[in-house]
């Protein structure tokens, strides 16, 4: 049972469809891994359904129904396209760890080395090319350079655990940080850690070297 869950407001924004693509992907990954948040999301979507029923309707223009039928007939004459699923090449994962289904439509780059025992992979979202989403894979005890954020940073731990002085996050846990949080995440001693991260704006690293590296990674 994991202990760090997304804030209620983040779940609400997800249900209402108001999150950017990157944060939405990371949240979907958490929901996939967390039965409790999955149950809450079902309630919030049901709330969306109830609110749709209760909204004051706005009539459509005359002929809207027959135009819709025409579109359906026109679409039926095309064979459905094969689903655009990009699963082809995937970087390796530790034995026993599966890719979450939330990443099915994404293309994921090979692991790039960014330091001793530290690797990074870019996640490309078909629906938003400029989203800053990536995977970070670091060995036991490794530490990410100290940084703060410009905008929201959301993280889902896929494997292993890290801590940053605030608390410890384990596989299945979710974290949200913003410009008020300055931290230096460190992988726990038990083993390596893999996280899925989405950034709203670039990270602000303290050190020059880390800053240059961040710029190269596009984060």
């Amino acid at each position: 049972m994991n202990t760090h869950h997304p804030d209620q407001l983040l779940l609400l924004s997800q249900a209402a469809g108001r999150l950017d693509a990157g944060a939405s992907l990371v949240l979907a990954t958490h929901i996939e891994m967390c039965p409790g948040c999955r149950a809450q999301m079902r309630e919030l979507e049901a709330l969306g359904g109830v609110l749709l029923d209760q909204i004051e309707p706005v009539e459509l223009a005359a002929g809207a129904f027959s135009r819709t039928l025409e579109r359906i007939d026109a679409a039926a004459s095309f064979a459905p396209r094969p689903p655009a699923r990009v699963k082809a090449t995937r970087p390796d994962l530790p034995a026993g760890l599966q890719w979450p289904h939330s990443l099915d439509g994404c293309s994921i780059s090979p692991w790039h080395r960014i330091g001793p025992d530290m690797r990074w992979s870019r996640v490309d979202l078909p629906q938003q090319r400029d989203a800053r989403v990536f995977l970070l894979r670091m060995g036991a005890g490794r530490m990410l350079a100290a940084h703060t954020h410009s905008g929201r940073e959301v993280t889902q731990v896929l494997y292993g655990a890290f801590e940053d002085g605030r608390a410890a996050w384990h596989a299945g846990d979710f974290d949200e940080a913003d410009e008020t949080i300055h931290h230096r995440p460190q992988v726990t001693a038990d083993g390596e850690c893999i996280c899925l991260v989405a950034l709203q704006g670039p990270l602000r690293f303290d050190g020059l070297l880390a800053r240059a590296l961040g710029a190269w990674m596009g984060i």
Binding site: A16, R42, E45, G49, V50, L52, D53
Partner: peptide
Amino acid sequence: AQASTWVFTIAR
């Protein structure tokens, strides 16, 4: 999902 919930997710 009930009908309204299902249609809501389509519209959303």
